[in-house]
Design a protein around this nucleic acid. Sequence first.
DNA 1: GAGAAATTGGAGTATCAACTCCAAAAAGCT
DNA 2: AGCTTTTTGGAGTTGATACTCCAATTTCTC
Lengths: 202, 202
Amino acid sequence: MLGAVGLTKKGQATRDRIVAAASQLMLEQGVARTTIEDIQAAAGVSPSQLYHYFPGKNALVLAVIEYQTGRVMDVQHQGLDELDTLGSLSQWRDLMVGILTETQCAGGCPLGSLASDLAESDPVARVQLANAFARWEELIRDGLVRMQKRGELSEAADPGDLAVAMLAAVQGGLLLSQVRRDPAPLRTAVDTMIAHLRTLTT
Amino acid sequence: MLGAVGLTKKGQATRDRIVAAASQLMLEQGVARTTIEDIQAAAGVSPSQLYHYFPGKNALVLAVIEYQTGRVMDVQHQGLDELDTLGSLSQWRDLMVGILTETQCAGGCPLGSLASDLAESDPVARVQLANAFARWEELIRDGLVRMQKRGELSEAADPGDLAVAMLAAVQGGLLLSQVRRDPAPLRTAVDTMIAHLRTLTT
DNA sequence: GAGAAATTGGAGTATCAACTCCAAAAAGCT
DNA sequence: AGCTTTTTGGAGTTGATACTCCAATTTCTC
């Protein structure tokens, strides 16, 4: 069994369907506005099924955070694992702008939306999301360190600070893009950070 | 009468009290999680009073957006109106970091939180918030233009793009600070943007 | 294939939240 | 003061929402 113990293949599939449906709905309309009934309908399950896999909405929210963290990290690995030159940073930017454009800027960042939604009302969720952002930040920092080792980035540059600033640019850019329904702010914010890195070339 | 027509001094005070209470609660726990009953209790009013001043929760939300836009713009004017040197940008950063520290990083940006909360579920609110961000961005851009005219910023720099990037840094920094309960990310994000402006000095 | 465990269906419940209504009190106007 | 308009109190209604319960069915294990 790949999933949790005591779950058959069919059970795991049902559980996955619930989490996927909940994730999409919560991204589209927020956690509080998403009702259990909404999720039941979208996943095609009955109440007893949902409560068989999750003790309550709260537990489901944590599963959603885990799911979205996985999705986001997959994309970020795809864009950042090969990061070693400034040119590859532009490709990473294109990857994100592309995804945003596909969805017409709806929803913004799955992690950012959950964070803003839950930070003050669910302490456990807040910590989970803080960890997710820490992992993301680390991915960026590792890429910058690689660039530094290759001599693409000045030794004087602080990859840690730059990674925080870059992640902030992504999150802020995504929020502005979401509100304006226009991918331009994300692109501008990230491009400005890339331009800044360019000034830190050796 | 300062407020809307047909409101006595007492009526205006009651209305104000409702909006202020709603604004604080919605910032603390999100719009959907804030019940009319919560607001009634916090403002010390009865249901009939609330519905006398607002047709429904939706209208109240719009009043909250207006209120928070005013509060944020007041602070931003305070920090940006005299903006003409790189040094005054650091003071502006201190102003925001100070406010964030006072509130122990709870709530994040009043406009950013509302934006993330309402962008997908309330089209009218989304547009209102987009306008608020546009005014904020303009305030930053005007400051950068003044710096450019004084020769503090290169003629080659694009104040419009830099203002977008700066606003994104502020929003992203606030989100990360909120999730981590630590003002450092906001400070780092804004400082990095200031450092970038420093590279664009004539 | 038989027993045990996991999964499913769907009706039911208790609570909560948004909103209504009407009559009384206060405030403003002349 | 007397009349009108605004403001207020609080009980009540309607619908939604999270969650329960138990029996029936499917799946797994041996």
